[in-house]
């Protein structure tokens, strides 16, 4: 009983880390561009389809396909920001929302047209391998996916801390006017940020494809999940996204364990409501 529970919690933590990576993308985009990407889960679903396609037709392991998918999503994000979203940055919030929702609708139904309503999943050869750590059983895929998520998250944090572009982007987030004054190309930096956020999504999608099946409704579900995670962690906070992902991952398995698996979403939405009302800046977000 307790061993089983412990196994569940570990599963939740590991899955949560992959969710974190996806949410990290949302958080980074919001933190810099101040646009809430309502098409986030839909983009993740596209990445999952890409991973499925690579695995099915080219026999490419999603772990190896990850850089390619991340690069593809980077281009998608960069292009969308440059070509479409940028002109909405100074418009009212609801206009941005409608823009992104329209993109989400196009992505969901485009994938429905392209891939049909059926579930697509990637079966890797080590899909059923497990590690025994003492009495605990840990899925190999899940462990690998979580480790890869952490690695990508770390890489991204390094990018923002160490590289010139990363620092310039942080400057934009900190003080937009100042960034313009010192001659930063804000439009390009925003596009890069959107691209990087999308690359996170690409990586997360590639990893998720090994853990869950993708079908058209997966997109909106993941969008909501990403929102729950970043709001709970703190919109715009990278650490918050990591923490939020793990929290939601664990709370979902716990809700599934003690209540009914189908009720786990209710649990997450209840947490979202409470956080929005009581601590809208999130657990790790700074109070304005």
């Amino acid at each position: 009983m307790t061993i089983d529970l412990a196994n569940q919690i570990i599963t939740g933590l590991l899955t949560g880390l992959v969710y974190s990576l996806m949410a990290l993308g949302l958080s980074v985009i919001f933190g810099v561009v101040r646009v809430v990407n309502f098409a986030h889960g839909e983009m993740t679903a596209l990445a999952m389809y890409a991973a499925w396609g690579l695995a099915t037709y080219l026999d490419l392991d999603p772990l190896l396909g990850l850089p390619l998918i991340a690069a593809l999503l980077f281009c998608l994000g960069y292009g969308l920001q440059r070509g479409l979203i940028d002109s909405f940055i100074s418009k009212p919030e609801h206009m941005q929302f409608i823009l992104l929702v329209s993109m989400a609708i196009i992505m969901v139904n485009g994938s429905l047209l392209g891939f049909g309503p059926d579930a697509h999943g990637v079966q890797v050869s080590y899909g059923f391998d497990t590690y025994e750590i003492g009495p605990l059983l840990v899925d190999k895929v899940r462990l690998l996916a979580a480790a890869a998520s952490l690695a990508v998250s770390l890489l991204m944090m390094l990018f923002f801390q160490k590289t010139m572009t990363g620092k310039a982007i942080r400057a934009c987030a900190d003080n937009l006017v100042g960034a313009r004054v010192i001659g930063l190309d804000v439009k390009r930096l925003y596009a890069v940020t959107f691209g990087i956020g999308s690359a996170c999504v690409g990586a997360a999608g590639a990893l998720l494809s090994m853990l869950i099946d993708v079908m058209p409704p997966t997109g909106p579900e993941l969008t909501l999940l990403a929102f729950i995670i970043v709001i709970v962690g703190g919109l715009g906070s990278m650490g918050g996204a990591l923490l939020g992902g793990m929290l939601i991952g664990v709370s979902e398995v716990l809700a599934g364990y003690f209540l009914m698996p189908s009720m786990k979403g209710m649990f997450s939405f209840a947490i979202l409501i409470l956080v929005l009302i009581l601590r809208p800046q999130g657990l790790l977000g700074a109070r304005k």
């Binding site: 823009l99 329209s102 993109m103 609708i105 139904n109 485009g110 429905l112 047209l113």
Partner: peptide, 15 residues
């Protein structure tokens, strides 16, 4: 039979 085409067009017209 193209499920989703209607919504796709909604999405495009909204955009």
């Amino acid at each position: 039979k193209a499920a989703g085409i209607k919504q796709l067009c909604y999405g495009l017209s909204l955009l």
